[in-house]
Write a protein that binds this DNA or RNA. Structure first.
Lengths: 335, 335
DNA sequence: TTGTAAGCGTTATCAC
DNA sequence: GTGATAACGCTTACAA
């Protein structure tokens, strides 16, 4: 009768080796994909392993090999539902390739050093910054405490040379949105952005403004919400429209969907305006809510799956340099 | 001149020991909270450590001590924005207590074994299941592959005796909601639940029905959405109301906010009904969107912070047994 | 193709 | 209060 795996006793490669009558090294080889091992040995090892309930200890492996197949996902923006989409895609795709993910919360107040220290103490192979709410000075401190082998900025831009950016091509994206608006006959756009800190994150804003200017020669009004959530967007938009009702914008171009949804709420429930009849709105991200009949938001979808795959390639060292991928314009009813 | 920390070379406790003129063990002691070490030695060690840029390697520590201070957060329900709130709170609170979190995606199709195996291979001290979409058979397979020291079910109920539940007290909660509705004069409630699988997750449904019956003697209609997202809720509610318009429900009690929001969208945009004038709606969770002027949803907030703190105590072995905590009723405009 | 020996950076045990 | 020594479970040489 087969012995059942005993949960109390941890079974190691040595146990399997003894059971299969081979060396510990051969056991390790049997679990490697492309190892020089005879099919017979491998089979014997795997059978024994299954019977004993053995699974390699990745912690010990990491320590010995100095490679953990572990990434830290560091983020600070838990208000935006888009984060959930990013986390879902990243964990799913990375784990399908054998990578585990450490989720690290970076509070707004303190800098990234603490997060990176935590990551490095767990010996991650790379740290991935996912977020919109930190500016580039954060990266400098992070890199000062350079304890992490690779630092990737995901779904956001970074000019920092020691950092690798994987993102959606914002210039292309905002150009596409601007084109759509020009062709739709809109003439007085306003851009609703997040907090106005000195950083590269306002890429979308400048990309839109540049493109709009070159196509129409016209100017673009600008508002900053105090945070990336719809509450802040409601305040910002209310303020904007109560100010100058005589020559009000005919379209609100928003840095992301959550701001766009706040903008729509403000227009409808605070200002009594209709979307898109009175004012049109565009977003960015295509969060699930954008599809809801209450919003039906015209937006732009980031190529998250491809971005996640690109991250995987970067982690494996199969790819170098920044990655900028084109997304997809999603026209719905709000513009 | 002080040498700057060299990122290329990893500095170990031995280096610090040499620099401080003590043994490696003393270095370790200096980093322990309540270790028997003289203040002088500790100070000398910490100074040397700071100068060399030393931080203990938690991987090696885990291997040696058989304690990783690492938890696996396993989830499969990335459609519900409430997950983001849970993740935020858990990572923040756990990390403030020195615990790191592994985020593991459990795909709907396969069982929990893969996720638990992944967790155990990283030697987590506990696995925490966060989700609504698995039924109890999943727990059985998970426990069959019993590789993880502790298995906690968070923000959901489990009857499994090998599992520890930390959740909001649903009976109390649904009782509170039912009371509010009875007092509000509602008479024909319908309950909108998620997918109808055989499991304990329909706790809220039965809790509401029981309470409603005992207070009014009346029955409660029931609908099941095919998934926990607002698209599925829209379909389910549309179907329910096109069926029997003669004696339609006057209030829709929803298992959570995301279903409630879908229900409201269906009522307003598909059926042309007004909330709460024609049909009232209640939710559960108090996700950020519930506060939006488009919804202003009457709902019930789970005590997430306390639940997270309870999890911490369970992890540290300071607490045993299931934890059921009371939440807070949040009356807004929809009921 | 397979086995042997020496690490990886910490903690645990037990002396001093 | 402090230090030596043996684990922890694996991988990386290198030798057979």
């Amino acid at each position: 009768m087969d012995k059942l795996p005993d949960p109390e006793v941890s079974v190691t490669a040595d146990d399997v080796a003894a059971a299969a009558g081979v060396s510990r090294w051969t056991v390790a080889r049997a679990f490697k994909k492309d190892a020089s091992i005879s099919p017979k040995s491998r089979d014997r090892v795997l059978t024994a392993a299954r019977r004993l309930g053995y699974a390699p200890d990745l912690l010990a492996a990491s320590l010995a090999s100095d490679r953990s197949n572990l990434v830290a996902l560091i983020t600070n923006d838990f208000n935006n539902p888009h984060k959930l989409v990013l986390l879902e895609r990243l964990t799913r795709i990375l784990s399908s390739h054998g990578w585990a993910t450490l989720l690290i919360h970076m509070s707004d107040s303190d800098d990234a050093s603490a997060a990176l220290l935590a990551a490095s103490q767990r010996r991650v192979d790379a740290a991935v910054l996912i977020g919109t709410r930190f500016d580039d000075s954060v990266l400098d401190t992070a890199l000062g405490a350079r304890r992490v082998k690779k630092l990737v900025v995901f779904a956001r831009y970074s000019q920092n040379p020691n950092t690798l950016t994987i993102a959606c091509d914002d210039i292309l994206a905002m150009g596409r949105i601007a084109d759509h608006l020009v062709e739709g006959g809109y003439r007085r756009p306003a851009f609703l952005a997040g907090p106005d800190t000195q950083s590269a994150k306002l890429h979308r804003k400048s990309a839109f403004i540049d493109h709009w200017r070159s196509r129409t020669g016209g100017d673009v009004a600008t508002v900053h919400a105090e945070a990336y959530d719809f509450g802040a967007a409601i305040e910002a938009v209310s303020l904007l429209f109560t100010g100058a009702m005589d020559n009000r914008p005919d379209v609100l171009v928003c840095e992301n969907d959550i701001l766009a949804i706040g903008a729509m709420d403000a227009l409808r429930y605070r200002l009594g305006l209709k979307v898109p009849e009175d004012v049109a709105v565009t977003g960015f991200d295509d969060i699930p809510l954008s599809l809801s009949p209450a919003y039906r938001l015209t937006t732009y979808r980031q190529p998250i799956t491809q971005m996640a795959e690109a991250l995987f390639e970067v982690l494996e060292g199969k790819r170098e340099g920044d990655v900028l991928l084109p997304g997809q314009f999603i026209p719905r009813d709000t513009a």
